[in-house]
Computed example of a mutant assay.
Amino acid sequence: MDFHHSPQIRSAFPELAAGVVFAQGITPDAAPDLERFTAVAKERLAAGTEADLPEIQAWRRAFSKMGLKPTQYRCASESLLRRFRKEGSLPRIHPLIDLCNAVSLAYAVPVAVFDLAHVARSLEVRHAVGEETYLTFGGEVERPDPGEVIFADAEGRAHARRWTNRQSGYSAVRDTTDSVLIVAEAMHATAAADVAELTTALARELERAWPTVREVTIENR
């Protein structure tokens, strides 16, 4: 699986730091340690709201640069932190999704996870041409706006819209998921170091909680 950001994205957002974790052998019956990550989020939110965090502020600037209103379209980590702050917890969906959400809370960094059985050959973060197809979680098909930042595979499917705002239902993790690509992206001043720490912590928890995992690979860029 080839994952990369287009040269245009790299040029427009030179501050971007990304980390990738590839794992095989995922099952729906693991029990990851979520509490150690959510405890970090609780401590950080005790001093203010998610809007005060430098990680979130950096993504708000990026969304503004893309021509999006940051309080209308939030990055995934801001949406999770906002819900967590208001409700005190997040719903349980699948052990891997729950883990990625908890890690995203702790680091205030968007973490996306894709079922590779539903991604065609490659995944590129790039500007849409307007002909790509995006499947919502409700089963509706949309077409991203031309110029919108998306995660696109080799067959023109958009697996995320508005960059880190919303993932597709097509490649969402499900009980049959085995191989996954997990992507963390950040823009703040210490993004490179924080993303490297995040991917290491995530990989260790994957290996601990999933004895069935056959391979875990980390790459930071």
Rank of each mutant, 00 (worst) to 15 (best):
F37S: 00
T176V: 06
M187S: 03
N220Q: 13
T200M: 11
T38H: 02
L181P: 00
R60A: 05
T49A: 04
R126G: 03
V195S: 01
C75T: 03
R204W: 05
G48V: 08
N220C: 12
R157I: 06
R166M: 11
E35L: 08
A120Y: 13
A160E: 03
E50W: 15
E197F: 01
E207P: 05
P32F: 04
T217W: 09
A209V: 05
A106V: 11
P7D: 14
T177V: 11
F22T: 07
I97V: 15
V119K: 02
R143H: 15
G19Q: 11
H118P: 00
G138M: 07
T177E: 02
V213R: 07
Y107D: 02
W210C: 04
V40L: 11
E148W: 03
L123V: 07
S122A: 13
P211I: 10
T176R: 15
P54H: 02
Q57A: 11
T136R: 09
I26E: 00
A201C: 13
Y170N: 07
V141R: 15
D52W: 07
I93S: 08
F151Y: 14
A30W: 02
R204C: 09
M1G: 11
A76S: 13
G48I: 10
F137A: 13
P28D: 07
T133G: 04
V113H: 01
A62G: 10
D115V: 11
E205V: 14
R162M: 09
F137I: 11
L96V: 04
R143I: 06
T199N: 11
E140Y: 14
V216E: 09
A30L: 06
E78P: 00
I182M: 03
L90A: 02
A209D: 08
A62R: 14
K65H: 14
W163N: 01
I56F: 01
V141K: 14
Q8K: 08
L81M: 08
P144L: 08
V119I: 10
H159R: 03
L96M: 04
T38W: 04
R85I: 04
L105S: 04
T27L: 06
F84C: 00
I150N: 01
S171H: 03
V141Y: 12
F22W: 12
A120K: 15
R74V: 06
A201Q: 12
T176L: 10
G138P: 01
Y134K: 07
A108P: 00
P211F: 13
K86R: 14
